[in-house]
Write a protein that binds this DNA or RNA. Structure first.
Length: 325
DNA sequence: ACGATTATTGCGTTCTT
DNA sequence: AAGAAAACAATAATCGT
């Protein structure tokens, strides 16, 4: 992140010496150069493809960079973020939708031609006015949302790369005009959740929405939209995803953990894990693995650490038995 | 603690207007 | 096409051993 900030600094300095009308393009160019250095995904080394909207890794779905220039350049956003963090709470996020003023061109109010100095002056006014609007609306939303994404990411102890993916998702969402009828917080939470899903991390909507203090339905809705819009390569949540955190919470010996993992993978192959609570099934696998080694833990213990009930563990334990080792 | 039985919840489908 | 409802599966709760 330190490097990123350094780049932002330099791009800002460059920008200030240039003609104002080039600000956005140049800021964008800086972003492109710094973020997509090769045709390889920084996350999984997979192949990346670029379409009109963005550059995406084919394997893991990491959005490497967006190709649109109609979003606020990064230095603005982070600039704002620094301000917002210490300033007043965000209250003016959605007050002027559709109420902004347009400055026409060509003719005056009565339809007469306008020429010369006056027209140039109007053009300048129009440019400045639209610019001012951009700053106050979209970029403000972006800064707010990114702040929220970052807060959630650190609250959920996510790696930097996952967090950045979430940020990119959020930006993409804004570019695609997905905010209408949804809250910034909801989209931010959904972005974080989406990034987790795309990386096979064991976070549930519940975990994210709890941290975000947003109704779970909002997050679900926003995530659904994100998914439809971008076709996120999120694999279905599998029990084996929940194995590592669960096992470490229990202080599980390696031997049992490995056995539980093979059990989980076996069950997943057989397709008996669809529609079940993944953490619950993972807990059941750990229980069975422990049982084979001579009752390592009780049902209620694994159930508790997996946030499910002993009953759930039991039912899954049964299906595991039927799987015939 | 574990197993069996009943209750509840969540969710995709289907039927209706 | 949007909403309501009957239906199903999974999870939770409760009781008995």
């Amino acid at each position: 992140m330190v490097e990123g900030l350094a780049v932002l600094e330099s791009s800002r300095n460059t920008v200030r010496t240039m003609a104002t009308r080039d600000i956005y393009e140049s800021g964008f160019d800086e972003d492109v150069r710094t973020e997509s250095s090769a045709n390889q995904c920084p996350e999984c080394d997979g192949r990346v493809t670029t379409n009109v909207v963005e550059t995406v890794c084919e394997d893991c779905g990491l959005v490497i960079n967006e190709q649109r220039i109609d979003h606020g350049p990064e230095w603005r956003a982070y600039d704002d973020e620094e301000c917002e963090r210490t300033g007043a709470p965000f209250t003016a996020a959605r007050h002027d939708r559709g109420l902004s003023t347009e400055i026409g061109r060509g003719t005056d109010a009565k339809g007469n031609e306008i020429s010369g100095k006056k027209r140039r002056r109007l053009a300048r006014m129009r440019r400045e006015q639209t610019r001012g609007r951009w700053r106050s609306k979209a970029e403000r939303n972006l800064a707010h949302g990114l702040g929220e994404v970052r807060r959630l990411a650190s609250a959920l102890v996510l790696s930097d790369s996952v967090r950045d993916q979430a940020c990119q998702l959020f930006r993409s969402a804004q570019n695609e005009d997905l905010f209408r009828g949804r809250s910034i917080e909801g989209i931010a939470a959904a972005s974080v959740y989406g990034a987790c899903r795309c990386n096979g991390l064991s976070r549930l909507v519940d975990d994210v929405s709890e941290m975000a203090r947003v109704a779970e339905s909002r997050v679900t809705n926003a995530y659904k939209t994100l998914n439809e819009e971008f076709g996120l390569p999120a694999e279905p949540v599998s029990p084996s995803m929940f194995m590592p955190p669960l096992a470490s919470d229990l202080g599980c010996p390696d031997e049992i953990r490995q056995r539980a993992r093979t059990l989980a993978e076996l069950a997943e192959e057989r397709g008996v894990t669809t529609g079940v609570h993944p953490a619950g099934f993972a807990a059941a696998c750990l229980y069975k693995a422990g049982e084979e080694q001579g009752k390592w833990v009780t049902q209620s213990t694994v159930a508790e650490t997996g946030n499910v009930t002993p009953t759930t563990v039991r039912t899954h334990h049964e299906t595991l038995e039927e799987l015939a080792v």
